[in-house]
Design a protein around this nucleic acid. Structure first.
Lengths: 238, 238
DNA sequence: AACTCATTTTCACAAATTGACACAATCTGT
DNA sequence: ACAGATTGTGTCAATTTGTGAAAATGAGTT
């Protein structure tokens, strides 16, 4: 009845489908290095929902929100694209999500026909893309069960934890989180209103878990407490 | 302010990354046809959460629930595997989800090393897997925004609509839905309690949208109303 | 510096949804 | 036919979050 946490979704070697000795992405990086650069301003789109998938992108700098529009004008943010991320992946002919810049952003743009060529020349690349997208899937599933049944404070804690882990993985400080997105974006991501996000952040601050000097800079003061908040699937055993 | 529904996520040709003339899955099917069959009884697992990914599976008959356990013993059902589905995909070394049979189920089991061999021999296969998993991703995103912000009745309507579409895609009657899973499973899938699922189905019946002769057989009486329920992202413009 | 606009924080209030518990009814399989 | 599992309903409460509004903060501009 307790959280035994059976060695969960920490990063695992993700090489299973990749043929030994095959391309490990070097060619993709190489291709991307020569791909054209594109700069987009805040509010502009890398691609719109439903637009034909002509390119895949790698975020060089900046940040984007990946979203889908709901009927009534609201939107569901499905994720964010930060520097280093590949975005625009998928097998459909058209983008299922839109990608809008949250700050000035530069992208490497690799035309899909060229990507196809590269895949033909080096089949290992397909495995690389497969990995990238299955990570996205794992991520989506993670978010799914951290949002569908949980309260605002747990959702926000999850969000912060996620960004912290990301920092960690990239050698940045896991205790300082820079938010390129607004409270509204976070709300659309977590299924909350922006007021609730704000209120919840204040609550976390009041509890001493975080520190908010500037509204877009979060310092994690008590990482353990945050993690417990995320892990506690209502074992309110206090 | 209205639902313009810009030609959304209906199925699109999903051949973009696939090299022209490449394998369209025939080899995978061929390999699977020769793969060993495995029968599992209700309640047994095709694979457990966290178990090494030794095989990928194709569901020949039956149905499975794909789930992840939460800390307190509850679980989040992330999806279901029906006949024809490939399950066990992913790039991680271990399964992130468990797969438990909801009814007697038979599976084709393709060992991953063999899959790797096949991919080496026929690189187009990787593209096939890529497609399969990006469909899963699209699916997860769909579910995500149909669950995170919405009420029980909308969630249940979404669930039924989804199964109806699946039937349609496979040539079955889109108006008759056989549920291999219990109310509890549905609840775990939609982030509701089983009581709420039951109550909500009754409500849908009371409204004349559905018909429940046997508890595991749903007849959709008013498909339009159901679709509106799903689409209506609270345009309660009434 | 002053002003404007956008973002964020905070407050007060309602209230609607769903979970919880309990029990009846129904179904299933042996 | 019986026992156990699953499902349907009823009542109840209460917790959470949305809503609306307004103040505070911050950024950018002239």
């Amino acid at each position: 009845m307790f959280s035994q946490s059976l060695a969960p979704n920490t990063t695992q070697p993700a090489v299973y489908l990749r043929a030994p000795g095959a391309d490990r992405g070097e060619e993709l990086d190489h291709g991307l290095a020569r791909a054209s650069l594109r700069k987009i301003a805040v509010g502009e789109h890398a691609f719109l929902e439903g637009a034909p998938r002509s390119y895949i992108f790698k975020v060089e700098s900046g940040a984007l929100a990946l979203y889908r529009s709901l009927g009534d004008g609201r939107r569901q943010v499905l994720g964010f694209g930060f520097d280093g991320d590949l975005i625009g992946l998928g097998a459909r002919k058209c983008h299922l999500v839109g990608a809008q810049a949250l700050k000035p952003t530069t992208l490497r743009c690799l035309p899909v026909p060229q990507l196809k060529q590269m895949i033909n020349a080096n089949p290992g690349l397909a495995a690389r893309l497969y990995e990238a997208i299955s990570e996205e899937l794992a991520d989506a599933q993670d978010r799914f069960f951290n949002v569908s049944q949980r309260r605002a404070i747990e959702r926000v804690a999850f969000f912060l934890q996620k960004l912290s882990h990301r920092n960690e993985a990239r050698g940045a400080d896991p205790r300082v989180i820079l938010l390129p997105m607004s409270r509204a974006d976070i709300g659309d991501y977590l299924g909350l209103t922006l007021e609730t996000v704000s209120r919840t952040l204040s609550e976390l601050r009041a509890k001493g878990y975080i520190c908010l000097k500037e509204s877009r800079v979060v310092q994690l003061r008590n990482l353990n407490a945050l993690n417990e908040l995320v892990d506690s699937a209502s074992d309110d055993v206090e």
